[in-house]
Design a protein around this nucleic acid. Sequence first.
DNA 1: TATGAATGAGTGTTCATTCAT
DNA 2: CATGAATGAACACTCATTCAT
Lengths: 225, 225, 225, 225
Amino acid sequence: MTEIILRSNQLKFHKETFEKTTEDRRQKVLEVAIDAFALNGYNATSINDIAKNAGISIGAMYSYFASKEDLFLTIINNAYFLMEEILNEVKESSRDIYDCVERMLSASREFSFQYPKLNQLYLDLTTQALAPLAVRLSSKLERITPRMLCDFIKAGVEEGIVNDKADKSVMAYCIDNIFMLYQFSLSSDYYKERLKIFIGEEKVSEVKDLEKGIVSFIRAALEVK
Amino acid sequence: MTEIILRSNQLKFHKETFEKTTEDRRQKVLEVAIDAFALNGYNATSINDIAKNAGISIGAMYSYFASKEDLFLTIINNAYFLMEEILNEVKESSRDIYDCVERMLSASREFSFQYPKLNQLYLDLTTQALAPLAVRLSSKLERITPRMLCDFIKAGVEEGIVNDKADKSVMAYCIDNIFMLYQFSLSSDYYKERLKIFIGEEKVSEVKDLEKGIVSFIRAALEVK
Amino acid sequence: MTEIILRSNQLKFHKETFEKTTEDRRQKVLEVAIDAFALNGYNATSINDIAKNAGISIGAMYSYFASKEDLFLTIINNAYFLMEEILNEVKESSRDIYDCVERMLSASREFSFQYPKLNQLYLDLTTQALAPLAVRLSSKLERITPRMLCDFIKAGVEEGIVNDKADKSVMAYCIDNIFMLYQFSLSSDYYKERLKIFIGEEKVSEVKDLEKGIVSFIRAALEVK
Amino acid sequence: MTEIILRSNQLKFHKETFEKTTEDRRQKVLEVAIDAFALNGYNATSINDIAKNAGISIGAMYSYFASKEDLFLTIINNAYFLMEEILNEVKESSRDIYDCVERMLSASREFSFQYPKLNQLYLDLTTQALAPLAVRLSSKLERITPRMLCDFIKAGVEEGIVNDKADKSVMAYCIDNIFMLYQFSLSSDYYKERLKIFIGEEKVSEVKDLEKGIVSFIRAALEVK
DNA sequence: TATGAATGAGTGTTCATTCAT
DNA sequence: CATGAATGAACACTCATTCAT
C-alpha cells in the first residue's frame, strides 16, 4: 500500500506522542492497523495483535492512542483527509458537471486501487454498529461531494447544459449513490461480486469501459433533450 | 416489527429441531436475534445474551443452530427470501422498466419501514469482515434484480422506449446502485444522515417527493431523446 | 479456619448460581477468596488468582459473582452476619452492662481466633479507598452494638449501677472504641504489634489477664462512686 | 492543606536528590501524592498519575524515590514526625494524666482537621496488606504515646490521683484505643459514619461536647473512688 | 429435548519501572 | 539532573461453545 502520511485537520484522535515517534514506527502501526481492521472489522480486531504485528509493545500503543476507538478514528480521519484532497483537486480542475463526473469516477478508481483497505474500513464505519464512532467524525462526513455536485448541476442548469426536470439535490444524490457503490465495487469483496453479477466476470477488468458506460448513463440523465 | 416467518428455500442454516419447536419460541428467538445483531453488529453480539433475552437456554439455542454464524445466516437467508418475494411481485406486476423502477422504489421503502433491522443486517453482511459468511450465501445473493432490470431494459430497447447509448447491464447496475443506497438511507443511521446532507433535513420526511425525483432521474437516463 | 456458611440476610451480593453449586466449591471459593483478600487487600487481589487457587475457571467465578466487588461484599456481608449472631447472643444472655462488657470481650476474642482473616477484611473495608464499597453495605454497618451498649447503660443508670456523669452515647462510643481495637489487636499484625508495645511482648499471650484489665477499666469508668 | 515540610529523622525513604530540588517541586509532589494515596489507597494509586499531576516527569519521580513504596513511606514518615512533635509538646506541657488526656484529644482533633488525608493514609498503613511497608517503619511506630501515658499514669498512682485497680499499661492501652478511633472518626468516612450512629448526626458538629464526654469517661475510669 | 453450569482463551486497558537522550 | 517514550506482565471481565443432568 502507498505510504500513509499522518494528517491532522481540525480533528485529531491520536496523542501527541504518536507524532513524536519515528516515522518508521508510525508507518508500521498505521499500516498494520489498517490491514487488521480492514480484514476483520473493528470489533473483531485485537489491539494487542496490532501491537504485536507492528513490533511494538501494547504499552506504546496506548501511549499513542487513548483507546482502540481512537486508533480506528485516526485511520478513518486520515482516509477522509486523503479523499478530501482528491475531491478538492477534482473540484478545481473540472470545467462542468460532465467533466466532474468523469474525473470523480477516475478518482474513485485510483483511490480504490491505491487504498482498497481504506474503502473497506469506510464501509465498516457506515454500519449501524459503528454509529457511535461515526458520530465522533460527523463534522467531516460527506460534506464536500454534495455541495460540489449541487454547485456544478446548478451552474449547468444556468448554462443550459443540464435539464431541470428533477430536483437538483436529488440528482446529486443519485449520482453520488452511483459513485459510492462503484467505489465499494472496486475494493470490497461483496460489492466486487455484485458488480460481476451485473456486468459479467470477464468485463470487470475493463474498468474504463464500465466508467464510460456510467458516464453516459449520468450524462443522459442530466442532459437537456 | 412484522412477524418473521421461517422460510427454507434451497439454503438452510438451522437444525431440524428449530422447525419443531413452538411457533412462539421460534418467533421470539428470531426477533431478539435480529434486534441484537442489528444494534451491535455480528461480532459484538453475544449469543448467550440472545438466548437470555429470548427466554430460552443457551443449550436450546445450540440445539437449534450449530453456531452463532448459522443463527446469523438463518436470519439473513430469511430476509433474502422476503425480499425475493417482493421482487418477484414487482417483476410480475410491472409493465415496463419505468413502471418497474417506480415499483422497486416503493418496495424498497416499504421493506425498509417494515424491516429496518433487516436492512442493517444486510449492510453488515456486505462488510469485508463478514465476507466468509457472505460466501456461504453467495448462491442467493443479488441474483434477481440484475436479471430483472436487464430484461426490462432489453425489452425497452426493443420496444423503442429505452435508448441504447450505454451498455444495458451498466444501466441496470447504475439503477440498482441508486436503489440500494436509497434503501440504506431509510434504515441505517449513517446513510440517513448522508441523505439529509444531500436533500436537507426538512425534505427527508417527504419520501414521495424524493422518489419522484429519483424516478425522473432514471427516466431521463433511459429515455430515447 | 472454621467453615463458612453462606448466609443471606436482607442483602445479597452473589448470583443465584452460587447457591446452586456444590457445597465443596462454595466453601473453597469463599475460603480462598478470604485468604487472598485478607493477605493482599482488596485492590491487590486478583480474581483470576482466586479462581485458579480455588480450582475453578474464571468463567465460573463470574457466573457466581457479577464482579470482584460483589465477591468481596459477599464475604464481608457473611462476616457481618456471623458477628451479628454473636452479638445477639451476647445481648440475650447478658444481665447488665458489666456482664455485657465481659461477654463482648470474650466474643471478640473468640471471633478473632476463629476468623482472624475476616477481621483483617473488615479493617480493609473501613479504609477510605473502599468507602464506595462500604456504602453498598451501609444499611448493615455497626447497627447492633451502639444500640445494645446504650440500652444496657441506660438500664444501668436507672438501676443505679451506672453513673450519669458522661453522655450515655459517648460512654457507649468509648467502650466500643476499646472493643474494636482490641479485636484488631488479636488479628491484624499492625495492631498486634501495637498491643505488644503497650503491654509487653510477654503478656500478649495471657489474653485473659488483659481482658480482666479492660473490664476493670470500663467498670471504673461507669460505676457510681 | 497546611504546608508539609520534609523532615528526616532517623529514617529516610527518599533519595538525596529530593532534598536538592526546589521547595516548590518538593511541596507539589508531596501534596499531590498525599491526595492520591488518601483517595485511592496505596495499591490503586498510580505513581505515573502523581508525577503527571505534580507536573514533573516520571523519570524525576524515580530520581527522588527508588520506588512507589518509598514515596509512600516518605509521606508516612513525615506524618509521624509531625505527630511526634505534637505529642512531645503535649508531654511537655501536661501537668498530669488528666491534663494530658484533654490535650491529647485537642491535639488529635487539630491534627485531623489540619491533615485529614494523613490520617487516612495512616489507617491504610495499619491494614494487613500494607504490613510489609509498616515493618520498614516499625522502629518509629507508636513509640511515644504508650510511654507517655504509662508515665503519667504511674505518676498519678504515686500522687494518689489515679487508682491502681487495673494494670497501668492496660489503662494506657484503653485510653489510646479511644484516642485512635476518635482521630479516625474525624477524618475517615467510615469512622465518621460510625460516630454518627453512636452519638447522632446532629451532635457530630459539636466536637467540644464530645471531647468533654470522653474526658469525663476516662477521668472516671482512672480516678480514685 | 432442554437446561444452564462450566470452560478458558481472549479482550481492552493499566502501571511500576527502565533507560536512551 | 530531567525527560518521557517504551516495556510487558497483569488486570477485570466476556463469550462461543460443551456436556452432564
